[in-house]
């Protein structure tokens, strides 16, 4: 008999664990959680590249998409992802369900659980609605966007897209431009980018910058707020434009679209200030010619279409982790 050193076991005994019943926002994800999602999504992207881009891993699981607010890409992306993993998918919209008969959110969620939903992907126009749902069901709840609060899978697919181009994000500078105040995409991106080691600059008209987010960056000031886009873009590795809601003009938060375009449109001239080859991103749907110029949206540095494709892989990863982890 001889001494054998402790060494990593070949099996999954010490594999990183997934401890979240729900995915409501990125603010609860540790760096290890985020790495696990990213590594899993790498494998899913490979599955998507195959001639038959489908596996049977989640056979027997039921994923319900419950959308109280319009969506094309998020709902379709989740449906494709769930089907690519072999799960059964039920799609519900508020207009086609008992919601129009006055059924409460809690009753709807409990009914769906009783029907056998394992995972519930939910979009709601009220911030916080998915939290109420999650509290009232054993099913895992994935927030597909709630009001102006959070959109965790969008933030994770944005992060995944950045990492595929830039590698580790430690010390990288990400500039998010637009109506940050009303953007659930920006908010969730701040948490995941900070966890991944990046620095974030939020830029937009002063009326659309939430002051409270500045403290999220801690004492090192890893979150900066500025109304000056030309200055914000210096040394940027990533520039993400947010959709500007044309209705915002009416509220007086932006003086006019023309003025917004002059000050905040992401275009080729402005991008010249960023690092050469800086990535251009947008969560969609785009208003080309307003928050982003057509040449920036479709230029060589644009990864906007890739974001959509990566979204399927990242959502497959999230569904896989949540459906296979016993967190109850």
């Amino acid at each position: 008999m001889i001494d054998v050193q402790e060494r990593p076991a070949p099996g999954p005994a010490e594999a990183p664990a997934w401890r979240h019943k729900d995915l409501l926002d990125t603010d609860v994800l540790s760096r290890a959680d985020i790495d696990l999602v990213m590594e899993t999504a790498d494998a899913m992207l490979e599955v998507r590249s195959r001639p038959v881009a489908k596996v049977a891993t989640l056979r027997g699981a039921t994923v319900v998409t419950l959308f109280y607010e319009q969506s094309t890409r998020t709902r379709a992306s989740f449906e494709v992802a769930a089907k690519a993993m072999g799960a059964d998918v039920v799609n519900l919209t508020a207009s086609g369900s008992s919601v129009v008969k006055g059924e409460s959110l809690v009753d709807t969620v409990r009914t769906l659980e009783a029907i056998g939903a394992d995972l519930l992907v939910m979009r709601h126009d009220r911030s916080g609605a998915p939290y109420l749902a999650a509290k009232n069901t054993k099913a895992g709840v994935i927030n597909g966007g709630d009001g102006t609060h959070a959109h965790p899978t969008q933030a994770l697919l944005d992060l995944f897209t950045m990492r595929r181009h830039l590698g580790a994000l430690d010390g990288k500078k990400v500039v998010i431009v637009g109506d940050v105040l009303h953007s659930r995409v920006a908010r969730s991106n701040v948490w995941s980018l900070l966890a991944a080691g990046a620095n974030v600059t939020l830029c937009g008209p002063a009326t659309l910058l939430p002051r409270t987010l500045a403290s999220a960056g801690g004492e090192e000031g890893r979150v900066a707020l500025t109304a000056d886009l030309d200055r914000a873009l210096v040394d940027a590795d990533v520039v993400m434009a947010l959709r500007i809601q044309k209705e915002r003009q009416a509220t007086g938060l932006i003086p006019s679209l023309r003025e917004y375009i002059n000050g905040y449109q992401v275009n080729a001239t402005r991008l010249a200030r960023a690092k050469p080859g800086a990535l251009v991103m947008h969560p969609g749907p785009m208003n080309e010619g307003i928050e982003i110029s057509p040449e920036a949206a479709h230029g060589l540095a644009s990864v906007i279409e890739e974001q959509v494709a990566n979204g399927v892989a990242v959502r497959m990863a999230v569904l896989y982790l949540m459906a296979t982890a016993r967190t109850k």
Binding site: D42, L58, G60, T324, A325
Partner: peptide, 13 residues
Amino acid sequence: VSRRGQPTPLRPS
């Protein structure tokens, strides 16, 4: 997959 209680780590083939 559904018996282990935790996801198996995945890598691309």
